[in-house]
Computed example of a mutant assay.
Amino acid sequence: MERSKAKTIQIFLPDGNPRGVKIAGVTNRTVQAILIPRNLLKSVKERPEVNNVALYFLFGNNDEETRTEAYIGEAEVGYERLKQHNSSKDFWEVAVLVVTNNIQNQFTKADVKFLEHFAYQEAVSAGRYVINQTLPTNPFIPEWRKEDLLDIFETIGLLLGTLGYPIFESFRGNNEEVIDEEENEMFYCTRRDAEAFGKWTDDGFVVYKNSKMASSPLPGFERQLERHNEKLHNFIQEEILGIEDGRYIFLKDQPFPTPSAASTFVLQSASNGWTDWKDRSGRTLDEIKRKQL
């Protein structure tokens, strides 16, 4: 019998502020994630949870980057390490500390170093966030403990996603390398000489790797051209876009907030994404996703 994937997650607000500190945990699990806005770092100083051995994540947006930047680390005393980063790292706005709430079963230094190494690899593989750091060292962990930590890691990913930071989830879900055009409801934008394909997801409309943009902007696009060219520049800097045979090609999956934002960028001209994205049979995104409601 297939097990249910349903989960109950409790989020505690210590100061009652939904935009403040959050402590999230899964019922019957000992691991918990503490989200701390940078401006409220001092307010958690006395909380016992933040003074334990911890895996931690820093999240923020660099002005020159289109994707959220993240940093993954480990610490013997979580709060003290965050205090150091408050003085030395500019980019981050939010920290998430991962600790255990079981006094008899705290993380060891080796535990969090293993989780740091594994988390880095999974985050880089997912490609959702910009990770600007070197590969952390991989410590020796007994096989039995490694299995425990991998089980804990699944809970960590769930908690981070619930708090709004799905750092280990690729834009294609769990089967990143598999593109089943029928099951995944693939849509194509081939007006002019564009050869783009993608999917409408929880993240917006995701244009997939290997999509090719139209070769040049159309007349009438001048009012948007400056902003469009700025985005082109940023995408090239972040290696989201490359150039192949004189045309822009997507090197990574890239989400856009709406179908029209995606098709306008791909076509380099004004576009209604609800009609410009079509499935293999020629049905528009509008027909499939809006008119069938």
Rank of each mutant, 00 (worst) to 15 (best):
R3V: 06
T8Y: 10
Q10I: 10
G20R: 06
T27M: 10
S43C: 02
K45I: 02
K45P: 00
P48W: 09
V50N: 04
V50H: 02
N52K: 15
A54W: 03
N62Q: 12
E65V: 00
E69Y: 01
Y71Q: 06
V77H: 06
G78K: 12
L82S: 07
K89Q: 11
F91E: 05
V96F: 09
V96I: 13
Q104S: 13
A110W: 00
L115D: 01
E116Q: 10
Y120T: 02
S125L: 07
T137I: 11
N138A: 10
P139R: 07
F140M: 11
E143H: 05
R145Y: 04
D148F: 11
F153H: 15
T155I: 09
I156E: 12
G157E: 13
G157I: 02
G161Y: 02
Y165M: 07
F171K: 12
V178W: 13
I179D: 07
R192G: 07
E195C: 06
F197N: 10
G198V: 01
N210K: 08
S215C: 08
P217H: 06
G220R: 04
G220E: 14
R227Q: 06
E230A: 08
E230M: 06
E238I: 03
L241V: 07
L241A: 12
G242I: 01
L251M: 12
K252D: 04
D253H: 04
Q254G: 02
A270G: 12
K278N: 10
T284S: 15
E287F: 01
